[in-house]
Amino acid sequence: MHPALSVIFFTVLSGAGYGLFMLVAVLHLTGSYPDASSGELQTQLAVALVLITIGLLSSSLHLHNPRNAWRAFMRVRTSWLSREAVLAVAFYPFALWYAWEVRATGGDVGQAGMIMGVIAVLLAGLTVFSTGMIYASLKTIRQWHTALTPANYLLLGLALGGLALVAIHGWFVGDDPLLGGIAIALLVLAAIMKGIYFLWIREVTGPTINTATGFTRAPVRILDPGHTAGTFLTREFGFDPGRQVIQRARLGVFALGFALPILLLAWVLSGAPAHWLTLALISALAGIGLERWLFFAEARHAVMLYHGRQHT
């Protein structure tokens, strides 16, 4: 699959934003946010909302006819993309109400504000889940058609959010064992999940060139695809960077996305200056960005069977 930069930006940034929002709101609402100053809470929520908004705006860049983007709310009953759009927009009033209450009351929100916060957290989680389900619902791409896809989107969003949380907390107060612990735990969980995903997609399943053409009793090879230059299909689905690049990118995902941030977190927790957490966040954003690129680059669409691939 062709990796569209706008979609990579969208899913990584808005995933991080939703993750940050969920973690901040849950910690705040349960009263376990350490040294919760009003200014810090406001900054955390503002950063989350800015990340989400940049992501959502960037997502509209991959539309070829954005004039009709408003129609994306019309098919909630069947389409995960429609559900995502509706949930993403429904999130804003609750999140803004909650953030406004935090600003107005200095963090000591009333009952209405708490309910708004809880609903916003639920909507944030459902939005990220829907993003994952857009990909997981496609039977044509076996690498995506798995329960691991929405799980990955949720966990990677939360892990990035956890890192953003400690990094911003680092600028305001300094390192904190609870927040650092949450961030490390989420990163480890996300790394394990990503490892399982890579293991899972190694197994070749699904349609082959034989079932695609209907000739299951003999080997089938392509003689001619019927066109001399690229088509929409080969450009959109034919992207294949090669085995070696994919292996290196996987290494990069684990090194930049998980290993370096975990090491930096552990280092800061054992006494190093908390500003190093910002580097951990930047490294994780690069690593997860690479992961999102890989998510597309490794996906093999079934239509490529008609263009000569023996299996997906």
Binding site: H64, N65, N68, A72, T140, A212, H301, Y306
Partner: peptide
């Protein structure tokens, strides 16, 4: 149509 390509992604027959 808003040109999001998702239907083309869902079609195995191109």
């Amino acid at each position: 149509c808003m040109g999001c390509n998702l239907c083309a992604w869902a079609c195995p027959y191109g």
